[in-house]
Design a protein around this nucleic acid. Sequence first.
DNA 1: ATGACTTATGGCACACTGTGACAGAAAGGT
DNA 2: ACCTTTCTGTCACAGTGTGCCATAAGTCAT
Lengths: 202, 202
Amino acid sequence: MGLRERKKEKTRLAILDAALDLFLEQGYESTTVEQIAGAVDISPRTFFRYFTSKDHLVLWFHDHGEEIMLETLDSRPEDEPAFTSLMHALRAVLHDVESSTPEETERFLKLRRLLDGQPRLVGLSVARGAETERHLVEAVAARRGVDPDEDQLSHLIVAFASCAMRVGFECPRRDATVPEISRRMAETIELAERSLRPGWDR
Amino acid sequence: MGLRERKKEKTRLAILDAALDLFLEQGYESTTVEQIAGAVDISPRTFFRYFTSKDHLVLWFHDHGEEIMLETLDSRPEDEPAFTSLMHALRAVLHDVESSTPEETERFLKLRRLLDGQPRLVGLSVARGAETERHLVEAVAARRGVDPDEDQLSHLIVAFASCAMRVGFECPRRDATVPEISRRMAETIELAERSLRPGWDR
DNA sequence: ATGACTTATGGCACACTGTGACAGAAAGGT
DNA sequence: ACCTTTCTGTCACAGTGTGCCATAAGTCAT
């Protein structure tokens, strides 16, 4: 990994950190790209080369999460019920958060604090989740050997799973620590599994 | 209802119709507010007095739907399980679409065609749905006599319900008629109810 | 009708996001 | 050192969305 790439990664994280701090300090809307760029000493134009939009900053976490979910899904046994596999994938994301560096953890918590009670941003996040769902539906349909366009159950399985994820992540309001979030998420997963009829996902 | 209000309503619908047609014709992104305003002979400034944003055009349906759902929820017996009530609320929305005027139906179908396969717009719609969910959670929590901040099950009930709604609405790709959509939605509702353990929503 | 009142509209200036194009700087390879 | 590739800043520009103010249209008296 050359100097170039290392520098880029450093810049990317610097932008992200500066932005999160500014957002938490003065609010998302009232922070401009110009301010963020100023804080890390780059031009606004360059900002848009690192993040395609201001919104993209808030969605940074999703890209990573989606990757982990798809990988985990791939590694689960073929004959495992799809919803169970998805819940494992969800736990894998959680585990990744738990085992990440302090810097990453802090970013994650800052983002959570930022989202908390800001419908506009939660909306963005949910919308991004819908995008992820499309990929998951394809993976699930492939596993079940059906056409994703025709099979409603594949859609429902993924939709229910991402509901559980969303409830688990959003529910714990106020400042929370990673262990607290983790516990809460585990509770939600259990609750979801208890709510569904055994074998519903075939 | 005075002349003023009638005129306003007429303008609002004229804007909506012109916008939907332009969107379907040349795409959402490449249609400007200026064009839409031009098509109905108002100034761009006035456009923003009818719709707070260009995106708002796409969300027009939600406002109505949310209203119906909350009303229906209110009219259901107190002791009915919450998820069942939500499914009834969903059927009420559907019924409203079925029994609306040809103009309204056409708008609905155009909107569906517009959303179809446009992640950006589906995202908007989903994000708006998250907003609705917050209101529904409050209503459901009130019915169940719990604090919405503490009770995960209330969140899960609403989340599952809105999943079912989303799957039902999105799933039928391609041009569809209202009866087809309706049938599909009924299927989804049944599927969702079959998937859940009886009494899970207490 | 005439006038007074309220509300809707248009026009203007403006801030902000996001993009294309180009020139110069930085890094990589030889 | 050189040349190539990639990154960066600057500039110009299109588009969305808002505040402000003057004017036009509607409402409601008398």
